[in-house]
Simulated scan of single mutants.
Amino acid sequence: MPYWLMKSEPDELSIHDLQRLGQTCWDGVRNYQARNFMRNMQAGDLLFFYHSSCPQPGIAGIARVARTAYPDPAALDPASPYFDTKASATKNPWSAVDVEFVETFKQLIPLAELKAQSALLELPLVHKGSRLSVMPVSAEEWAAVLAMR
């Protein structure tokens, strides 16, 4: 089973929000590589839920893909910050997936600690300048992160 990491700003959607909601649409991804990763996700795949663009970025917990990729409804909503004027009901280049809550870590695993782990040297997240909001995680990287919690 493939593993993933997905980034969210906690003031938009935090692991605690997902816990309260149970399940939600993960939309608004506007990078083609990240979108393509989402299109490869399968129901049941696990993902690390990463808090980004906040005072203490890091992995906050685990979620699961509940629904595979479908056209991103936010691209068609003029009131959405993710609205795309080139998207239409018949031609929407963007995708969303539904994710469901699995677990909140007792403590967030900070980015600095992730960068210090030799087992995570190939994880795009720890590379300077990596801005992908969705990325694959190898089984070895998954195990290394779980051992840190």
Results as ranks from 00 to 15, higher is better:
124 P>W: 10
88 S>E: 06
95 S>Y: 00
114 L>I: 13
50 Y>Q: 11
44 G>V: 09
52 S>V: 05
82 Y>K: 04
87 A>C: 06
110 P>S: 09
70 Y>A: 06
106 K>G: 15
109 I>C: 15
100 E>K: 03
55 P>D: 11
109 I>Q: 08
121 L>P: 01
84 D>E: 02
116 A>H: 11
83 F>I: 06
47 L>F: 10
66 A>Q: 05
62 I>K: 00
108 L>M: 14
85 T>K: 00
107 Q>G: 14
44 G>L: 10
93 P>A: 02
109 I>R: 08
104 T>W: 08
92 N>A: 00
110 P>R: 03
81 P>D: 05
58 G>T: 06
87 A>G: 07
57 P>C: 05
128 K>W: 10
60 A>Y: 11
92 N>W: 03
53 S>C: 08
40 N>Q: 14
117 Q>V: 05
101 F>P: 04
94 W>R: 00
81 P>N: 04
61 G>M: 11
78 P>G: 09
70 Y>E: 04
70 Y>W: 07
63 A>W: 02
45 D>V: 06
126 V>S: 13
101 F>H: 05
47 L>P: 00
84 D>V: 00
111 L>R: 00
110 P>G: 11
126 V>H: 06
70 Y>K: 01
65 V>Q: 03
73 P>T: 13
68 T>R: 05
80 S>F: 07
82 Y>V: 01
102 V>M: 15
63 A>F: 09
114 L>N: 00
127 H>I: 10
78 P>H: 08
106 K>W: 07
70 Y>H: 05
68 T>L: 03
58 G>S: 11
55 P>R: 06
42 Q>R: 12
123 L>W: 10
40 N>T: 05
100 E>I: 03
119 A>Y: 09
107 Q>I: 01
96 A>K: 02
104 T>M: 12
44 G>D: 06
101 F>L: 10
65 V>W: 00
66 A>T: 02
113 E>V: 12
127 H>R: 10
55 P>A: 05
116 A>R: 14
83 F>Y: 15
80 S>M: 12
74 A>L: 13
122 E>M: 11
59 I>Y: 08
113 E>H: 15
53 S>W: 05
108 L>V: 09
47 L>V: 04
93 P>K: 01
87 A>N: 02
57 P>T: 08
123 L>Q: 04
94 W>F: 11
61 G>L: 04
78 P>I: 04
97 V>A: 03
68 T>D: 07
100 E>Y: 14
105 F>R: 06
65 V>P: 07
92 N>V: 01
108 L>T: 09
114 L>E: 03
40 N>L: 05
94 W>M: 02
85 T>F: 01
121 L>E: 15
107 Q>W: 09
48 F>W: 08
